[in-house]
Write a protein that binds this DNA or RNA. Sequence first.
RNA 1: GCGGACGUGGCGGAAUGGCAGACGCGCCAGACUUAGGAUCUGGUGACUCCGGUCGUAAGAGUUCAAGUCUCUUCGUCCGCACCA
Length: 805
Amino acid sequence: MSFVPYTPSEIEPKWQKYWEEKQVFAASSDTSKPKYYCLIEFPYPSGAGLHVGHPRSNTALDIIARKRRMEGYNVLYPIGWDAFGLPTENYAIANHVPPAKVTRENINHFREQLKRLGFSFDYSREVDTTDPNYYKWTQWIFLKLFEHGLAYKAEMPINWCPSCKVGLANEEVVGGACERCGHEVTRRVKNQWMLAITKYAQKLLDGLDTVDFIDRVKAQQRNWIGRSEGAEVDFMIAGTQEKLRVFTTRPDTLFGATYMVLSPEHPFLEKFKDRILNNEELREYAQKAALKNDFERTELQKDKTGVEIKGLYAINPATGKEIPLWVSDYVLMGYGTGAIMAVPGHDERDWEFATAFDLPIIEVVAGGDITKAAFTDIEEGTLVNSGFLNGMSVQKAKEAMTDWVVEKGIGERKINYKLRDWVFSRQRYWGEPIPIVHCDHCGIVPLPESELPLLLPQVDSYEPTDSGESPLAAMTDWVKTTCPKCGQPAKRETDTMPQWAGSSWYFLRYCDPHNDSEYASQEALDYWMPVDWYNGGMEHTTLHLLYSRFWHLFLHDIGQVKAPEPYQKRTSHGMILGENGEKMSKSRGNVINPDDLVDEIGADAFRVYEMFMGAFDQAIPWSMNGARGTRRFLERVWRLQEMVDQTREGYTDSLRIIINQSIKKVGEDFERMKFNTAIAQMMTLVNSYYEQGAISNDDFKALLLLLSPVAPHICEEIWQNLGFEGFIHEQAWPVYEEEYLKADDVEIAVQVNGKVRARVMVPAGLDKDAGESLLSLDAVTKLLEGKQVVKCIYVPDRLLNLVVK
RNA sequence: GCGGACGUGGCGGAAUGGCAGACGCGCCAGACUUAGGAUCUGGUGACUCCGGUCGUAAGAGUUCAAGUCUCUUCGUCCGCACCA
């Protein structure tokens, strides 16, 4: 039998068309079957089109989705578009086209590109965050957050990007620069919408114990939330009835607090200006500090600066002694109480500061040498110079001092988090309008649900303004409205939501995307949620992944969704680098275009290469030759058609073992995301088919079934060519037989004192104690001439190690 | 500084404490070809007196046996970073 050459450019579009027309990958509404929900982060449809990074995640979960279908699950593997956001808006400004139009074009382009790769997405459930039918519910959730006091407006010093002209959340500032454009971020005080994610800090932390996320994601989220336990303590101001409260994680060192430090913005300075003798000096220092952004502050950390507050003293509650007060920008207003007790003997920063300004350093934990450096060990030290704490360990002293402080009524136990509330306002056009009205009489008034969606109006200019106002503010017709409460003239909120809003709940909409009376029906949510397996980028760990967990935990608390956590399992793919090992970018000229690749080697080979190139969770440089190699592999699979003896059913005897081994290994490796070794195993299987020279129908079927989730088009085509029944995507996932995983006889290594000296064939499955019986084998006795066996270790089916002297 | 991942051929990488380098790329040789950047066959860690010896960043340890476990040192990448 002879076959036409392998031409992906013909067979791939053919099957894509078939799958689409027959809707073979649409999730069924039949809820009697067990469900499986696979999710990838929905793409931002940028003008640049698909990047080779997208198919890495998409193919991985496509493999899982296809395998689950073959295992009998009702699979939901949806796709959608996270389409609000700055790049589209900037493109629209530069080219004078409406963002909605750009978005539509980009989505169409993206969809075409994805379809060329043969992903088994359920396109009938597409969502688009810029669709009013979608953002109606984003706005609805915002109103719920507002209703429950989790959305509030506040004057906040925020991170401001002068280039994007937009406020940024802490999470969006990387190394002092704007995450998106790289421009240095400055500080600006603005009236902003905030979401109180900090109220969920503990729940976000606790939830991590209940889910199956890869460790580095959990670690990074824990780190970001930054819980620390300690105490708050009041220090009296000498000669007044006023007190200054500090937070400390080391209450045990209270006896060693020899001065206090306030952040330059601390309200205390204003309150006590009548008693402070050097207000002018302090004001100057505060101004200088305000000009520095966070990045500069950290850059300058070697040289501690500060100013003493003259005319005021605090009283150390433990020693009763008066201690001086200082102001320094190493104390941050945004954490704890904005003031600290300084214990220079046992805190590195305080030690540096005390050394620079010649302040007293007292040892209260013995174990180090505080003349050389702060002693911060909390495991080894013993308390000294500390009254009733003397002789205690640090741990014990912490408890004892906290109890003492609480009993005296001058403080309390306290847990602090580094997590900040989420800056939720953007002064930009291309985002969800915040459904709020400002009324002179009623204040901040939420729009009634019946008025949702609040449509984003057409504007003439999308340009952001230096004043920091959204372009919507210039739309007087739209801004002017009436108060939903009192009916008098009022103004709409003109800020929009950040890009993270729409992506914080999209996985819920997928469950029931066309519902126009609810964001999703309870039945659909109960059936599909939680997401069983979610794969995405590490860069979203402290952004999207945290934000969406927060929204879901909130929706759970108000009875909207059953489970607290949205994602059962979270994995993460590594980045694909350019051939030179650097990050792919236009400016470096090392970008690989997926379309070109499909043209050259085909979608299947592209998919196989993306999975074969290296460990899934690690960054890997691209190799064009490697990609061509996977095309060669598929050519070899294709040509196997000529070797099939169609009169034979059942596995060929001499192939039975490796087929069973392959079924086991490929299946297990897919589940562990070890796609590279799964494919290597299939290559080995193909190699052994060629060595065999002729194969049976069933030999070939086994290979095709295993390969079909990775390279679906070629497998479907061959399946049909050979006249096998039905379609390959409808077949059951193959199962292996335990008894055929091992040959009857296996080769083992014979070691003498740990070195391999011979190999012998022995019956498989000999147990541990059978080792001695192998000593009589010719090959073994030869090695033992003139030597005495001291010990004999037999590892079944692996090796025999003889310890001799 | 804190948290995490990691260090194996020319390259990407395999290896439940049990034969290091599977699989692929590249390279070398040969076959078939008018030709091939197609295909096929064989080879490919280093050294070698062709018996072997040495090899998983470096050093030590545990073990019959260590790339894998423990300790020390060096180095790379990622995240956070004056968070009291």
